[in-house]
Design a protein around this nucleic acid. Sequence first.
DNA 1: AATTGGCATTCTATCGCGTGGAGTGCCAAA
DNA 2: TTTGGCACTCCACGCGATAGAATGCCAATT
Lengths: 347, 347
Amino acid sequence: MTNERSDLSERAQLMLRALIDRYVLDGQPVGSRTLAREAGLDLSPATVRNVMSDLEALGFVCSPHTSAGRVPTVQGYRFFVDTLLQVQPLDERAIANMRLELLLDQTPKDLVESASGLLSGITQLAGVVTLPRQEHALFKRVEFLGLTGKRVLAILVTGEDEVQNRILSTEKQHSAAELQQASNYLNELFAGKDLSAVRATLLHEMQETRTHMNSMMVTAMHMADQVLEKNQDEDYVMAGQTNLMEFQELCDIEKLRKLFDAFNTKRDMLHLLDQCVHSEGIQIFIGDESGYGMLDECSLVTAPYAVDGEILGVLGVIGPTRMAYDRVIPIVDATARLLGAALNQKE
Amino acid sequence: MTNERSDLSERAQLMLRALIDRYVLDGQPVGSRTLAREAGLDLSPATVRNVMSDLEALGFVCSPHTSAGRVPTVQGYRFFVDTLLQVQPLDERAIANMRLELLLDQTPKDLVESASGLLSGITQLAGVVTLPRQEHALFKRVEFLGLTGKRVLAILVTGEDEVQNRILSTEKQHSAAELQQASNYLNELFAGKDLSAVRATLLHEMQETRTHMNSMMVTAMHMADQVLEKNQDEDYVMAGQTNLMEFQELCDIEKLRKLFDAFNTKRDMLHLLDQCVHSEGIQIFIGDESGYGMLDECSLVTAPYAVDGEILGVLGVIGPTRMAYDRVIPIVDATARLLGAALNQKE
DNA sequence: AATTGGCATTCTATCGCGTGGAGTGCCAAA
DNA sequence: TTTGGCACTCCACGCGATAGAATGCCAATT
């Protein structure tokens, strides 16, 4: 019962949880008296102080100064979410409402925007959703339209009826008939295959001896290659950034500016989100765990979303480290599922 | 020489200018001593005080409290920009650099983004550029691709090789041949006309007796109508919002949040920008002149941009009321010209 | 008549100081 | 092991005093 050293007694765990719950509410350091009252256990402040002392020795809490209460450290939060968090199951009706909201959208882009709006709206934090990856989407068809000069408008339709267009520069000016030929050729060759396979085939064919290909085919291949080249840069959609201004710990203009700059620049955020997409399941970065300075006082809770088991992207919530993880986590989780389902339906 | 009442003596104007110049620098109320030193005129602080008193009576300056210096009021700024502002001509090289930057862009969307980046980068304030209006662009061609179900992908190419696509829901499923027929019909009918004319014709034709139209033509008309219906919602691109965090008068989190919320919601901002596009030339809203609460401590300097005399949109800069109008105005002006020219070249 | 110096006045910002309160750590008693 | 007691620490807050920056007004000067 009385574990010593690194393992925490059950009582200490309860206290840590109570402390975090309390701290999440108002952001004020929690003292022994408050905690004794709040923790449910029937203990005197003095006893609580002893336990707190242990927790501090373990690095789970710390006090801003001698005579303030205790505040959870990053490690405290980490232990909390890893081992003693019990998420609050989500209200069925809430989920139904979210589903309804997502069903209204037609395109994946709309869906992603709604999802990010939902995340920020429900959590009152900032929501972020990456655009779905396209590389494993199915090639459906491609069309070419001649524009002025040697430029060609390429339209690529993928499995989910998602449309991309891109303007290509070609070597010579092509007639409408030539372009039609080219698209016919590509459509017959590739329809129904997945984009990465198409890409691979293209690269392979173009390096092979081209004896069996006429010039039209070569042109078509080249154009297709350009279309698929940088297949929709990674990007994300955010919502509710301004919610973060409500938190005093972020009211420092310096921090706030760094944060918003990072949101706008996108580069670092994309790196971070990319890590989350690779590690399956809910991922949580607390405070400086992310390694990027701008999120130092923030936490990021993410979940990948998938269609047919294929992970297409990641979504999540950004808030202060003292966020209500037990409430946020199931919301992120549910949103990821719903987004996946909604994307699936549109196929 | 000694004008009385509402008309300002030349000396008072000089003082007002000096006061604003000074106040723009550091945002501190300006006292009589400082002003006496700075104004160039060789006057004692006491004299300056008398003049200041007049300026205050006219409502051009006010003091935050008895023993602080004077601060320009909205009316003070207004008088300043209207009658005694002399803009600083822009460095030729700076203009050349901006032109170069814009020349790199291919699409109108890219151009708009670069322009907004330029505005914010050079002024160190927030830049905003509306997307160019399309309604007077030329109809070039339209293509229809059948998607799954009764949905059709419409692709509209306009004069500037700008491409828009939209997914339409149709009454029945159309074959590729039917769609081809429809697009051929529309392309022959409308190629080279301007979009608003096309729209007018469509509305007219669809209400007329349809005896001379077969069902294919009716379908085509309907689809075209859907394509042109809400021709690219008004929208704008912003950059450098975080620059606004540097100014103490905006460091109040409340104000900042209102501002950023307005930027994100876009509705009110679009209203405001719309007013600017109608009034030709540089338009300046100072402080609460805009009528929208969120800009109360801010000013907006805008200029419409045009191609071939046709106004396509508006761009501008948002900053605190105490911005360097003499520096910002020529920058906004030049950017508008350059953007117009760049858009013109891409045609 | 315009300008100026002088002077009392007003208000802010700031510093030091004292105090109350909240919380801790430690120790001895239960 | 828990608890009450106690000394100690530190912050937040309010108070008063002070210094400084401006002002407005008036009388003297140009």
